[in-house]
Amino acid sequence: MNELLDKMLANSGLEERLAEEIRTAGRLKKVKAGELIFGSDQGGGEMPIVLQGLLKVMRQDEQRNEVFLYYLEGGETCAMSIACCLEGRNTGFHVMAEEDSIVWMIPNSYLDAWMVKYLSFRKFVFSSYQTRFDELLTTIDSVVFHNMDERLLKYLLDTQQATGTFKIQKTHQQIANELNTSRVVVSRLLKGLEADGKIELHRNCIEIL
């Protein structure tokens, strides 16, 4: 675990003193696939940095309808959790483990001081915001300008890129939940993509060709 943390810090471009404070202040958290890290009804007590594995960020409305926003991979943190930490408020989202993952959790009490004290940490936070903002714009464009079949294909390709495998182990219902649509619609569109030779359907598995 120390090797994972050291590798992440070595690639982060953070000052050595800040890297040491991150080692001292944080704690290791292991999460299983499907496990909740932050809930939409919870305050932002800690900022997660992914050491290994894959997390997904979901948006939830008052009726608890959900939509997938973006993935978090190794070395990345969630801009929304930073906002929770710095502002102490609920942003209506939750973070779950897409696969078994290892996360370094940093208490929010350190973040204000690090923002003032370390230029590299400010750059790290702003870079995280910019990356997530760009991904949110892509998600908004997908919802507003693309048909559901285009959204579904983009979702599959994003998942393939994030997981590094062409076989996506998800049920039609899971995909429907993350795209905020019905299972019937997802099943119909997946069959259409299969007929077009873009995917191959298996039991609880979708293979991108």
Rank of each mutant, 00 (worst) to 15 (best):
G88F: 04
F38E: 05
P107Y: 09
K117Y: 03
K32T: 12
K32S: 13
M58E: 11
T24V: 06
M47F: 11
L193P: 03
S12N: 09
V116F: 10
L18T: 05
F133C: 06
E200C: 09
E35K: 11
Q63C: 02
V103I: 15
A162W: 07
H172D: 12
A83C: 05
A83W: 00
L201S: 00
G192F: 02
Q174C: 02
G74E: 15
E46P: 00
Q63E: 14
T163N: 01
M96T: 12
D134Y: 10
L136R: 07
V116W: 09
R27C: 09
L209E: 02
K167F: 00
E62M: 09
S128N: 08
A19T: 06
I82V: 15
E73I: 01
G26T: 12
V125P: 07
A162Y: 04
V103P: 02
I175Y: 04
R23F: 04
K170G: 00
G92L: 05
T139N: 03
G192D: 13
K154N: 05
L111V: 12
Q60W: 03
V186P: 01
K154T: 08
Y110E: 13
E46I: 03
Q63N: 13
E62W: 10
F121C: 02
A79C: 06
V185S: 08
F68T: 05
R132Y: 10
V103W: 03
V103T: 03
T139M: 08
K29G: 01
G164Q: 03
N204L: 01
E15G: 11
D100C: 11
L153M: 14
E15K: 08
Y118C: 10
Q63R: 14
W114F: 05
K32D: 04
Q63T: 08
E200D: 07
I37E: 06
Q60F: 07
G53M: 05
G92N: 12
E76D: 11
E16S: 14
G92T: 09
D158Y: 01
S120I: 03
E35N: 04
L156P: 05
Q174S: 12
F126E: 09
D196K: 15
K170R: 15
D134Q: 14
L201M: 13
R151S: 06
T24R: 15
Q174V: 00
I37S: 07
G44P: 02
E15T: 14
L189T: 02
G34D: 11
